[in-house]
Design a protein around this nucleic acid. Sequence first.
DNA 1: AACTTTATGATACACGTGTACCATAAAAAT
DNA 2: ATTTTTATGGTACACGTGTATCATAAAGTT
Lengths: 213, 213
Amino acid sequence: MPRTVDHEERRSMILGAFMRVAAREGLHAVSLRGVAAEAAISLRSVQYYFETKARLMQSGLTALETISNERLSARLHALGPSPGVRATLEAYFAVALPTDHESRQFHLLWTSYAMLAMTDPEISDRTFVDGPDRQHARIASLMEKGKSDGDFHGELDSEIEATILISLIHGIGTAVLVGQQTEERAFASFGHYLDGLSGQASGEPGRDQQRSE
Amino acid sequence: MPRTVDHEERRSMILGAFMRVAAREGLHAVSLRGVAAEAAISLRSVQYYFETKARLMQSGLTALETISNERLSARLHALGPSPGVRATLEAYFAVALPTDHESRQFHLLWTSYAMLAMTDPEISDRTFVDGPDRQHARIASLMEKGKSDGDFHGELDSEIEATILISLIHGIGTAVLVGQQTEERAFASFGHYLDGLSGQASGEPGRDQQRSE
DNA sequence: AACTTTATGATACACGTGTACCATAAAAAT
DNA sequence: ATTTTTATGGTACACGTGTATCATAAAGTT
C-alpha cells in the first residue's frame, strides 16, 4: 500500500503472531510461513521486517523478555507504594507460575529458548545468564531488606537464599507446566519455603532463636 | 548381512547414536539420516528397527529415563549398605546436577522432551508426571526416615518438603546448565537448604523449640 | 540344492523449508 | 507530471525431511 507505515508497530504485530504460533505449536515448529499466516500477511512481509529467520527468533526472545519484565513490573506496582518483602516475593512467584495462558506461554518459550541456546549458536546464550543475574541481584537485595525489616532471621545468607528462591520458582514452575504439580500445591510449597526464612535456619540446629519483633 | 542379529542390541546401539546426535545438535535437529550417519549404518536400517520417527523419539525418551534410573541406582549403591538420609539426598542432587557430559545430556534432553510434549501430542506427557511422582514418593519417604532418625526436625512436612527439594534440584540444574550458576554455588545452595531441614523451620516464627510427642 | 526369511542397501517421491528474485501498487519527492 | 522510494505480493529454487518401494546378499529352513 503506502510508503510510510509504523515499522515498530508492524514488527511487534508480527512478533505477536510469532509468539502465538510458537506457544501453540512449539518453538521448533515455527516457520516463516506459519507466522505470516497467523499475522494474515504474506511471507514476503515477514521477510521484509525480519530479514532472516535467525533474526526473527532472536527478536522473539528479546520480546519475550520485555513482556515478562512488564508483567512483573505491573504486578509489583499493584502491590502499592511500599509493599512488604514477603508480599513482593509472593508476587514474583505468582507472576512466574504458569497458571494462566500468558505465564504458561512464557515459561514454555523461555525454557525452549534456553534449551535451544545450548545447541544452537545463533541464539545468544548470554540472555539466560544476564536475565537471571539481574533477578538474583534484585532478590538478594530484597532479602537484605527483609532482614533489616525483621521479616527474616538475621543469619540468612541473602546471596545463597536468592539462588535457592529463583531456582525454586523455576523448578516449581516446570512441575506445574507439565502437570505434575497443581497450582495449589505450588503455592503451598512456596509459602512453606518463605515461612522457613522467618524462623531459624541453617548452621547449628538447636541454637537459640532470633528475636525479631 | 546375516539373517539373525540381536535386535535389542541393535536397537540400543542406534538409540545411543540418537542420544549423541540429540545432545550435540538439539532434540529438534534430530533426523533419521543424522542418526544413521552417527551410527554408521544406512537410513533404511534405522527405519527397519524403529518403523517411524515418532517411535524413535518415544523410544529415545524411554531410554533416557532408563539410563537416568540406572545412574541414580549406581550412585545410591555406592553409598554403602545403609547410608544416612542427608548423604542420600546429596547423591540425588549430585547425580542430577548437569556437571559431567552424561548429566548435562540428560538434563538437556529431558527438559527438551518435556517442552516438546507440551505442544506435540505424539510424545506421551504422562512420562513427565509419573517419573517425578515416583521420585516424589521416594524422597518423601526419605524425609520421614530423616525425621525418625533425628536428622530432621519433627515439624517437617515430608510431602511439601519433597516437592520443594525436587523442584530445587531441577531449578538449580537448569541454572547450572545454562551457565548462570557454577557447580560450587549449586552445591553450596543445596547444602544450605538441607541445613534448614535440620534446624527449626516453617509455621509461626518466634515460636518455641518444638515439643513433639 | 532349492527355497524362504531376514537384514540391509539404494533410491524415488511428495512436501515443507528458508531464501532470493522480480514485479508493482501506492505514496512521496522532484 | 515524472521520478523515486517504500511496502508488499507472487514465485522459483535448492535442499533436507519422513516415508515407501524395489532389489539383493546372507543365513536359516526344508
